[in-house]
Nucleic acid binder design. Structure first.
Lengths: 188, 188, 188, 188
DNA sequence: CATGAATGAGCCTTCATTCAT
DNA sequence: AATGAATGAAGGCTCATTCAT
């Protein structure tokens, strides 16, 4: 939902824009604010007021997914099996990347359009960092891995699944790749 | 070098175009034929005559790298240690992807502009396939990996290294990621 | 006038574009949207917004003429002398083709850019068809003529007048040719 | 064949160019000298040497047809039935226009690229003029028709047949239209 | 707040013609 | 004679962004 409370009609517009953008992203159409304005039958200005750039809109789409990931991650921090906790977190992250087409570009981008996105990405980073630290302390994960590697590796796995082929088996493929990678990350 | 022998002056132009395109690719500038024409001080038509599309030019840049990889791969086929052979091949491939900015898009593209590119990509695929087969027969590599996974995985590793950060330590990072992945791919 | 109501400034632009296009068509210059944009001192985008293709613009120019023809034709349907009604309709049509340089290409085109054009062309066809039917029933016109022949024949007469020579006596020439043709079409 | 005697190889080139151009014209492809050069596997320069402009090439294609028409017309001048002579000449002309796609543009063009074309068009004009004169003297054709009308009318009939529809029944349609027109031209 | 017209840089591509080889 | 590389004007079209209404 919108960051700040909006008038009822404005809120309705916001929702419509987001809904249409979601459809476009899902079908692989590049987001263009003009295009969206036409589809939702609003003036471009209105769309720009809500979302100053296409990136902002894209990040808005990715936000709920990121929030869910963070929520899951916070749960994982409570898990007393550090190996399982990290693996679960990474698995969820990969599934999200492959399932939500808005996520990969947001995850890979070095800078963000929305502060909220930065917040969430930092939360993800922090959670990953803690989970990794615990797993390494427990000596179930290789010591040479740093928390700065987690995001790139997840992006890499998702990208690999994308290169693999059609979008049909993408989730499955991504899971397979992650399993293999974890095999390499974990100590035996 | 040009595919078919060219007149001396045409060859000189070809070289200049390729040289400038190389610079642009290396500095991350997207290839645009008009832009290149301006920079090399030629008519657009000249550039278009040599390279009908930006993809063709990009693939031309990637060709020598691909050829070197194929050459290396053919050598690897003669190695009698199947595990080492595959690992060496994949390592070289990753290094190439990270070193030559023209390679990643070409490697990830589902279709090619130049027949030569298709040839080379198929050769790569075939070599990888054989090396993987041997390693699996020797039971040094997990059986559930297929040759269709090699290219995506290599693209994924390269992409991960790109996401990681600045281009400085990219080679190093990529190597680290590959090592980890191999750890997961190989049987212990 | 514009199909849908426009803002005042947009309407002014629309008018200017149409006016300039009219001049160009009249002097035989091929319509090019870029060229028009330059002449009316507007951004290309503005012209493209109003008229997505040169054909659309040309059809817009032809529309009033077509509307007048249809109006006349509907009047002719009320005439109780079927021979005179048909002859009058065809005469008007020829005069229009020769007078309005936007018409011939629109009339001869197998497909239309604007729905309005299709509507009008179908109306013309329908009117011609009815007038012809009545004239044939009254046995004043040869039976072997079909309504599918009317448009081609009118285009042919107009074209003949164009080939004949300079634009000066074109109307007169066209009328003469039509008279002769009617002489052949009508029963004596 | 070529106007002036050529060296054997040059003659062969000439023939190949003409042959390919004929194919293109027949399939409705616009003539472009570069395009032709590629298809006949010659340098553009060679094609330009033989045919300085696309019009010259087009007229070269039309020449044999025009020559045949002139030949027929000269025969018609010997016919002692002036009505039949004119009708036959016009019929042949129409058939040629509809059969040979190179002819209509050449016939309708106000100026020619090749002197030979001008010669032939003037011969056609002269023959038509004589045949018309005789038919008018014999009072089988309306007196208000002038020899300057013949070419435009023939072009108009051919054009009408083109507008009518697909190229399948074009000859037939053109014949029907000519018959009707003649009905109007001739005295009853 | 909403609208949507206007902008115009800028990319892509074609093609007739010239001229060095 | 033949070649074909080079030219570059020119046309087509898109799209992110601004701003008057």
């Amino acid at each position: 939902m919108p960051t700040s409370p909006l008038r009822k009609d404005a809120a309705r517009n916001w929702e419509r824009i987001v809904a249409v953008a979601r459809e476009l992203v899902d079908e692989g159409t590049p987001l263009q604010l003009n295009d969206i304005a036409r589809r939702v039958q609003m003036g471009v200005g209105t769309v720009y007021r809500h979302f100053p750039t296409a990136e902002a809109l894209l990040e808005t789409l990715a936000t709920p997914t990121l929030e869910a990931l963070v929520a899951h991650g916070e749960g994982a921090l409570a898990d007393d099996d550090p190996g399982r906790a990290l693996a679960g977190f990474l698995t969820r992250t990969i599934e999200a990347q492959v399932t939500d087409a808005a996520l990969p570009p947001v995850a890979a981008a070095p800078t963000d359009a929305l502060p909220r996105t930065t917040e969430l990405k930092e939360a993800m980073w922090s959670i990953g960092s803690q989970l990794l630290g615990r797993a390494q302390e427990a000596e179930v994960v290789r010591a040479d891995l740093t928390s700065a590697d987690l995001v790139p590796l997840m992006c890499g796995v998702a990208f690999a699944a994308t290169v693999h082929g059609g979008p049909d088996s993408r989730v499955e493929t991504a899971r397979r790749y992650l399993t293999t990678l974890l095999e390499g990350l974990y100590v035996h």
